[in-house]
Amino acid sequence: MQVNKVSDKYSVAGQILPADVAALKEAGFGTIICNRPDGEAEGQPPVAEIAQAAAAAGLAFEHNPIESGAPTPEAVARQGELCAAADAPVFAYCASGKRSTMLWTLANPEGLDADERLSCAEAAGYDFEALRPQL
C-alpha cells in the first residue's frame, strides 16, 4: 500500500485491505475514511470488513462514498467535517486516492488558500488545477 501525504493531517491511498489497517494505526492515523462506494469493482473488499478491522485496531471509521469525479456538496461538507473533528491524522482511500484528495481540496478542512491546496494535492501526485474556479 502506497500512502500519499497530502498534508500533515491528511493522507490518501487506493483501495486498502483489512490487513493494512494495523499498519495505518502504527503510522499514527486516528481515522479512516472510505470514499469508495461498496461493490464498485470486482474483488473490492466490503466496506464492513475494513470498518471491522478499524474498530479492532481502535481507529475511527467513516464511509463517505462518492462516484468517481462526481463529488456532491454534501459529501464535500461531510469530508471537511470529519477531517476537522479528527484528533489525529486522517487516512482516506478510494480506488486510487484521487477522489479522497479531491474531497479534501474542495472541503478545505485546514483553512488553506487555493494555491496551498493545489500545491498539496500536486505534491501527493494529483493535479486539480481544473478545480481552481471552485476553490
Rank of each mutant, 00 (worst) to 15 (best):
D38L: 10
V76G: 08
L82I: 13
K5C: 10
K5T: 13
S11D: 02
G111Q: 05
A124G: 00
Y10H: 07
A130N: 13
G111L: 05
A85Q: 04
V3Q: 07
I50D: 14
E40Y: 05
G28D: 04
A56K: 12
A121D: 06
Q44I: 09
E62M: 04
S7Q: 03
Y10N: 07
V3Y: 01
Y10Q: 00
V6G: 02
V6I: 12
M102P: 00
L118Y: 08
R132P: 10
Y10M: 03
L17I: 07
G28H: 09
A27V: 05
A48W: 13
N4S: 15
M1Q: 10
F61I: 01
P45H: 13
I32C: 07
D8H: 00
G97S: 04
K5S: 12
A41K: 13
E110A: 07
I16V: 03
C34R: 11
A60D: 10
I16W: 04
G43F: 13
E40G: 02
I32E: 07
Q44S: 09
S68W: 15
A84L: 00
L131D: 05
L118H: 05
F91N: 06
L17T: 15
D115V: 01
Q44V: 13
Q15M: 13
V3L: 05
I33S: 00
F61G: 07
S119Y: 08
C120W: 03
A121V: 01
A130T: 12
E42T: 12
A13Y: 12
A23I: 14
A51V: 04
K98H: 10
P37C: 12
P37I: 14
A55Q: 15
I66H: 12
W104D: 01
P133M: 00
T72N: 00
A121Y: 00
V12Q: 06
L106Y: 04
V76R: 08
E42S: 14
D87V: 14
V12S: 03
T105Y: 01
K25P: 14
V12D: 01
N108H: 00
A54Q: 11
L24M: 03
L59D: 12
A88G: 11
A48D: 15
N35K: 05
A23Q: 13
G39W: 10
I32F: 02
M1W: 04
A107P: 11
Y126M: 00
I33C: 03
V3G: 03
Y126H: 02
S96C: 05
D113W: 11
R99Y: 06
I32D: 11
F29T: 06
E81Q: 03
A55N: 11
N4V: 03
L59I: 09
E122T: 07
A95G: 14
E129Y: 09
E129T: 08
A57G: 08
V3T: 08
V6P: 04
N4G: 06
A54M: 03
I50F: 15
P37W: 14
A70Y: 14
A22E: 11
L24V: 06
P45Y: 04
E26C: 08
N64L: 11
V76N: 07
A19I: 09
L59C: 09
E49Q: 15
P89E: 08
M102E: 09
M1D: 01
E81K: 07
V90I: 12
A130H: 09
G125D: 00
